[in-house]
Design a binder for these strands. Structure first.
Lengths: 331, 331
DNA sequence: CTGAAAGCGCTAACAT
DNA sequence: ATGTTAGCGCTTTCAG
């Protein structure tokens, strides 16, 4: 009687005949679409369970034109910044019944374009995209595919961003309120809008109410560039704001390596609130980039676009917040 | 002439008629399967490019019975341990033409079973699975689906594991060689085989050539349980081996919080070589769990199983290694 | 409420 | 070398 020798899964047709109904009724019962008698439905479901019937996703996707999948494109999973984003996207997507293809672009725009095209070819219903930089490397591959861009500004795309200027201001205000005057700013790469917003806002506030000791740039790395390390020795400097936690951690590390430590020798505040931040010694004071909220917003917006057709283009902005830990000293 | 008003992508039939050939020729040209004249093929490809033709993945998957996708199931992306695994899996899979659905089970076996079933329903060609613990929570959902289990022993499944016992021995040997005698061991959860292997091997060596100061257990967390923290005060203790880097980092942190530091007050060696390990102060000496190699092996093995039918069941073992950094003092 | 039948877009025999 | 055609498993009119 039992002949499900691994190889083939039962088809709808088999289920139907096994249950003694038509494929239509079986389909209706399974999807709750058409109308089936209460007992018929139950019987069908029961038989389905018994013979281990599972829908064939490909056939269904082809028929209804949707795959129930979305793509997530991030620059680098290895960057402590992204795993929590990915996790939130995956969880929220699952809650909405979507599976997510995740792709890592290794921070390379060419690979990014290829990844996007690959997702389009795979027939995802939508994509959530954290671009390498504020530049559209999609080459049109996303044409007609609902897309939500995260943390970057790409004309023509819906987006979810954080209020970075506000965050920059929060950081500067915190330092100023703690009595710091000569404050240095270490920005990340300048070609990224959110980074410019963070640091420009902080710079403006510092310039207005304190004194900008220096404004330097560093890659997204815990290794400080020589010029940046040198800037840390600026006479009279009592605090720095780093545009990204990785950089702030780099500062902490450099301090330790040169026999100093935060906040006694220098106060530092970062930006992002990556997991590492609470593990440094001392724990880093920083600005919280609410990645999980952003992920949720993004998935929700995407699902809305997919299911209710494309609404009006919009970008939602979420708030940042100050996370006081132990690298700022009141003077 | 141009009427691709977003909505519908051209179909094979359209491409064929546009190129003035049959769908068969078009299909052959696209997939390089049948035989087509050189110029015909080029012409078809050219037209495809022009009208922006893309294969319909669902239709193709349904027809050939393979989706070109695989699932990756890990306990917790947020654990510093997994992102690099995921990244390697994704990259290697891409190199083989596969897309990967990643799912996070939140360390919950019920969710894990659901995730596995969901992947099976989605029609993945295979799955790479890092189980929460050494227990098969799949509930038969993986029946007939090529699967490779990573870092755990699940009867009936192919696997890729690290030589953990060897790693434990490496750690103990290193401490012993540095002159330590009274050595404590902090194991992670005991219900995980690889953890038992690490710690048992270390314990045996320490017992044989030194003196086991204590053998404690701690969750996979940087927060030390009271009993463990207390054990660290064992008189005469000069070194500890932690079965996981997160725990070792917890030790470092506890030391700092109580005014001590490694390696001066206590030598510590961890296991895993997670990214954090080289960022602690001082950088943690640990045992390298070669996740990227394991990921590669897993993907390669999986692809082999998928494409050349299921070969013999086997488990491949990769080597661990000692990563000397700065938390072990010679005495 | 239920069933028969027409495809969805594509691949792969099987002709020619 | 190229074309015709029969489905893959499923959803969904449309009849009954």
């Amino acid at each position: 009687m039992e002949q499900k020798k691994a190889t083939k899964r039962p088809t709808l047709k088999e289920l139907a005949s096994e249950a003694g109904v038509s494929v239509a009724s079986a389909s209706y019962a399974l999807n709750g679409t058409g109308s089936v008698g209460e007992k018929t439905r139950e019987h069908i479901l029961e038989v389905a369970r018994r013979i281990g019937y599972r829908q064939n996703a490909a056939a269904r996707a082809m028929k209804i034109g949707r795959s129930g999948t979305m793509g997530l494109v991030v620059p680098d999973l290895t960057n402590p910044f992204f795993p929590s984003l990915a996790q939130s996207v995956i969880q929220t997507a699952r809650a909405h019944g979507y599976g997510v293809f995740v792709t890592d672009t290794e921070g390379d725009e060419a690979l990014e374009g290829a990844a996007l095209a690959m997702l389009a070819d795979r027939g995802v219903d939508g994509v959530i995209w954290f671009p390498v930089r504020d530049h559209d490397s999609s080459g049109g591959a996303l044409e007609g595919i609902p897309t939500i861009v995260i943390d970057r500004a790409l004309p023509g795309f819906d987006g979810v961003v954080a209020d970075c200027a506000e965050g920059g201001r929060l950081a500067a205000r915190h330092l100023l309120d703690a009595g710091h005057r000569r404050i240095g700013i270490i920005s990340g790469p300048d070609d990224i809008l959110s980074m410019r917003q963070r640091c420009e806002a902080a710079r403006a506030l510092v310039a207005a109410e304190g004194e900008l000791a220096f404004f330097a740039h560093n890659a997204f790395s815990i290794d400080l560039e020589p010029a940046v390390a040198a800037a840390l020795d600026t006479p009279g400097l009592t605090a720095v704001f780093a545009g990204a936690d990785v950089i702030a951690v780099g500062v902490l590390r450099h301090l330790a390596a040169t026999g100093r430590r935060a906040p006694d020798d220098l106060s530092v505040v970062g930006f992002d609130d990556i997991p590492w931040s609470e593990l440094t010694t001392p724990p880093l004071t920083t600005i919280d980039l609410p990645l999980q909220s952003m992920a949720n917003e993004a998935v929700e917006a995407l699902v809305r676009k997919i299911e209710r057709g494309t609404g009006t283009r919009r970008t939602v902005t979420v708030d940042t917040g100050l996370v006081k830990r132990a690298t700022v000293r009141r003077i």
